[in-house]
Amino acid sequence: MHETMATVIDVRDVTVAYHRTTAIEGINVSFPSRAVTGIIGPNGAGKTTLLHTIMGMQPHQRGSVTLFGTTIRQARRRIAYVPQREAVDWQFPVTVRDVVLMGRYAAMGYGRRPTAADEACVRIALAQVDMLPFVARQIGTLSGGQQQRVFLARALAQEAELLILDEPFAGIDAASQETIFHLLASFRDDGKTVLLSTHDLTSIRSHCDYVLCLNRRVIAFGPVETTFRLDALERTYGGRLFHLHGAEAVMLQ
């Protein structure tokens, strides 16, 4: 097998149900390391559920998840998670620095004050996302794209090997999206791994190496060149794709 094909996340036969409705069913995927993998699918397809299950935050009824060849408990320090931007109250009285410092909490441990090394790590992460000038700003004063970059900086401050991002491009401007993708690509080029969910089909071809088409089950999974095709998208989105993304879908074919 090719060197870049080593597996970092192995999802085996995973099923998650809330009450009586099944969110995802019989998921089998091996996410390759040193790659940017995009997860696409309609609303309610189970993208967030799958990411939460991988992070060990969502109990699953069946199957198993292996990360770096071990359990999430053992591997957690090697993984950084970026939740959806809408999940928090951006009026919360903290600064950009305070939020990014949260990425250092797990390394700092209980009852410890941040060291000079932690503060340096925060500044480096902010510089990487071009947000250093905003270090002292209250987070509610930032634009959506800037908020997303702060969330990314917080994950970078964890110095992880695997980045998992839930809808990082929801409601942000094109420039911020480019900055983030550029950063994710350099993260991959450093030998690290990126897994993200997105609604933005147009960016899959230009920015992702692998794609997972998800609609409660795995519809298709593989390298973008061979997998991101009209028939897979049709099966993922049903007829809706033609109404919403008809022109794009034809273009992609």
Partner: peptide, 20 residues
């Protein structure tokens, strides 16, 4: 003593869980 952890859970419970 738990200033940071309480701040974290108040601001972003999902991220808190992701950190373990």
């Amino acid at each position: 003593f738990f200033y940071r952890e309480l701040l974290l859970i108040s601001f972003d419970p999902i991220y808190t869980a992701s950190l373990g």
